[in-house]
Simulated scan of single mutants.
Amino acid sequence: MQFLQLDGLKGKRIGVPNGFFNFPNRTVQHTVYQQHLDTMRKQGAILIENLDIDNLDTLMDNLNNGEQIALPAEFKLSLNSYLSDLSYSPVRSLAEIIAFNNAHHIEEKLKEIRQIIFLAAENTTGLGAPARAAVRRLSKMSANGLEKLMKEHKLDAVVTPNADASSVLAIGGMPGISVPAGHGKMGVPFGLCFGGLRGYEPRLIEMAYAFEQITKARKAPMFMA
């Protein structure tokens, strides 16, 4: 909670990378996001725009960049490690999660949602040669992409709409925090993500909290049955 600072945007260097805010002029999203960038400036943030992330197209292409090779094996290993270390949990492994979902298929909406990724991950037997090669390739692209960009421009964060940069952040093991930004014409909410390098969580919380408090963009959802 010590990072919940109302002046959390002041003095922060925030990058606005190309390839994300591609909304047509005069659309709600285009107008609102421009207003938010101006708000950040007024709150003392230093915005650096028109930045190019090297390898962005490849990093975003998770069907062909190797992410789908590395993800299942890493997911199983990481999830099993996490669950086994909890002080209490009704499930202790990915296999037990799959079994739980099967036993509660109605509540878990298994027919509609299914669990394809879970099943694919459970069928892996560790990080094989193809997965290790994919991890090395992705790590290199991340290091020469967003990580390099942030270090060269001494950025505290980059901002992107919604969860559009989630794959880019995840590949590099980097944190991101999303906050409400506005609502489209049909009332559908959209957000803004602050992403940074590993260990940048404190400053991301500062920025996200300050942004959230100054904009008050969230509205309680009103869904009709």
Rank of each mutant, 00 (worst) to 15 (best):
M1G: 10
F3R: 08
L6N: 11
L6K: 08
D7C: 10
D7P: 12
G11F: 12
K12L: 05
I14L: 11
I14T: 08
G15Q: 12
G15P: 15
V16N: 02
N18A: 04
G19Y: 03
G19W: 04
F20Q: 00
F20L: 01
F20M: 01
F21Y: 01
N22Q: 14
N22T: 11
P24E: 08
T27V: 14
V28P: 13
Q29W: 02
H30V: 01
V32K: 01
H36N: 14
R41S: 15
G44F: 14
A45C: 09
L47G: 10
E49S: 12
D54N: 15
N55F: 11
N55V: 05
L56A: 05
D57Y: 08
D57A: 11
D57E: 14
D57V: 02
T58K: 11
N64S: 03
G66D: 11
E67F: 00
Q68D: 01
A70G: 04
E74R: 10
Y82R: 11
Y82K: 09
S84T: 02
S87P: 05
S87Y: 04
Y88E: 13
P90M: 06
L94P: 07
I98G: 04
N101S: 06
H104W: 08
H105L: 07
E107D: 12
K111F: 12
E112T: 12
I116Q: 10
I117L: 14
F118P: 02
A121W: 09
L127G: 04
G128D: 14
G128Q: 09
A129L: 09
R132W: 09
R137D: 13
R137K: 15
R137G: 06
R137T: 04
S142M: 06
S142V: 08
N144Y: 02
G145W: 10
E147I: 08
E147P: 02
M150P: 05
K151M: 08
E152P: 02
L155V: 03
D156S: 05
A157E: 05
V158M: 03
V158I: 13
T160N: 00
N162R: 01
N162P: 03
A163S: 06
D164L: 01
S167Q: 06
G172P: 04
M174S: 07
A181T: 01
A181E: 00
G182W: 01
G184C: 07
M186L: 06
M186E: 03
V188H: 02
G191K: 07
L192V: 00
L192A: 00
E201N: 13
E201D: 15
R203M: 11
A208C: 07
F211Y: 15
K216G: 04
R218T: 02
M222N: 10
F223R: 15
A225W: 10
A225M: 08
